[in-house]
Amino acid sequence: MKRRHLLASAAAGLALAFAGAAQAQMDKVKACFVYVGPIGDGGWTYQHHQGALDVQKAFGDKVEIAWQESVPEGADAERVMTQMALSGCNIIFATSFGYMDAVNAVAAKFPNVKFEHATGFKREHPNVSTYNARFYEGRAVQGTIAGRMTKTNKIGYIASYPIPEVIMGINSYFLHARKVNPDVELSVVWAFTWFDPAKEADAARALIDQGVDVIASHTDSTAPLAEAAKTGGKVIGFGQASDMAEYKPTPRVSSIIDNWGPYYVKRVGALLDGTYEQADAWEGIAGGEVLIGEITEAVPPEVKAEAEAMRDAIAAGTYHPFTGPINKQDGTPWLAEGEVAPDGDLLGMDFYIEGIKGEIPR
């Protein structure tokens, strides 16, 4: 049930240099997409589908796209990908962490089909590539806004599953809220779902009942923003995965937008022109895969400027959200003064940083 990365074995993957010969040019490509939720979820799957549509726009009749929505992680995913391979798909994008084993199992049976797995780390066959985005960079921007905007000094985070991607986001959000507001306290509610509007709404209400007035979420629907909207302006939040612009200018005061289109266009284009090779990609704000949605007029100009300056510094490579000194939750040192977290530490992150209360579910 986990869509994105798991623990430390992910760390080694990013450092690998991949072999794999470039392919022959293709006159036409059939690109297929496996989605964990509905394309109308307003978040994660919606944004992946926008990327698929970008491929169609970029290449016209040179590309055929196909997709399957709401595919459970497990045996169903293996069945769907097998059917896609048999139907003539040249490249299959599997857009959820829990598809990882299915991707590698099916790839072994169809060596001439290319498989791209979002947020995974296993590349057991030369026709399997992986790709991801540095969402924690966007959380740093959101945390800055949260720390400045909270009136109760209580901010919240709706978490999906206890995997490194989510823990990275929690830590980055809190770290940057605490930097601008030392009195901030963070409450985390684990929803144990990627897309379940009812559960997400319950999680948002639980946070609001605790006095939280700024909510970030790592789930895929607009339900948390809908709950925030019911408070009459007392609670604000952020778009997650897509802009969720229907909730502007408040409660949605900004957003993290997952911009998959450039990657999908690049990879399908490489199949067409014969330059495709196995790869592992992890881009962020600088690469354009993580976008910060408009910061609305509900945010004071000085706070907006501060958040945008952080965004720009991350993009320029002059600031890394995990720069020491940072301790782990139990007070033991993690990063020394000025030290930047290695990618391996981030991809295997299984701990809270100092100041966050509560435990990570195991």
Results as ranks from 00 to 15, higher is better:
residue 41 D to I: 01
residue 270 A to W: 01
residue 18 F to G: 12
residue 75 A to E: 08
residue 345 D to M: 11
residue 43 G to I: 03
residue 38 P to C: 05
residue 230 K to S: 08
residue 345 D to E: 15
residue 222 T to H: 13
residue 131 Y to F: 15
residue 229 A to P: 00
residue 88 G to C: 05
residue 210 Q to T: 03
residue 112 N to S: 10
residue 276 Y to Q: 06
residue 67 W to Y: 14
residue 53 L to N: 05
residue 64 E to M: 03
residue 108 A to G: 14
residue 307 A to H: 01
residue 341 A to E: 07
residue 123 R to M: 10
residue 186 L to N: 08
residue 215 I to P: 10
residue 327 N to T: 10
residue 176 H to Q: 10
residue 313 A to I: 06
residue 260 W to R: 04
residue 25 Q to A: 15
residue 13 G to K: 11
residue 172 S to T: 10
residue 166 V to Y: 08
residue 67 W to C: 00
residue 155 I to K: 04
residue 121 F to M: 09
residue 52 A to V: 05
residue 352 Y to Q: 05
residue 2 K to L: 12
residue 99 Y to Q: 09
residue 228 A to N: 07
residue 54 D to Q: 09
residue 199 K to Q: 09
residue 347 L to W: 12
residue 216 A to H: 14
residue 313 A to Y: 11
residue 28 K to F: 09
residue 59 F to C: 02
residue 80 V to D: 02
residue 52 A to L: 06
residue 134 R to D: 13
residue 121 F to S: 12
residue 4 R to H: 13
residue 313 A to C: 07
residue 196 D to N: 15
residue 85 A to F: 04
residue 356 I to L: 06
residue 104 N to T: 05
residue 333 P to H: 10
residue 32 C to G: 09
residue 277 E to G: 07
residue 348 G to T: 03
residue 257 I to T: 11
residue 41 D to V: 02
residue 137 E to L: 07
residue 287 G to P: 02
residue 88 G to W: 09
residue 73 E to A: 08
residue 347 L to F: 14
residue 153 N to Y: 06
residue 241 A to H: 13
residue 130 T to F: 06
residue 77 A to I: 00
residue 126 P to G: 09
residue 239 G to D: 12
residue 347 L to Y: 12
residue 352 Y to T: 02
residue 105 A to H: 10
residue 256 I to W: 09
residue 293 G to M: 04
residue 31 A to N: 04
residue 49 H to G: 01
residue 41 D to P: 03
residue 161 Y to C: 05
residue 200 E to H: 04
residue 20 G to L: 02
residue 298 A to V: 05
residue 206 A to D: 11
residue 134 R to F: 09
residue 264 Y to K: 01
residue 21 A to S: 13
residue 151 K to H: 08
residue 22 A to E: 14
residue 314 I to L: 09
residue 184 V to K: 09
residue 355 G to A: 11
residue 272 L to H: 01
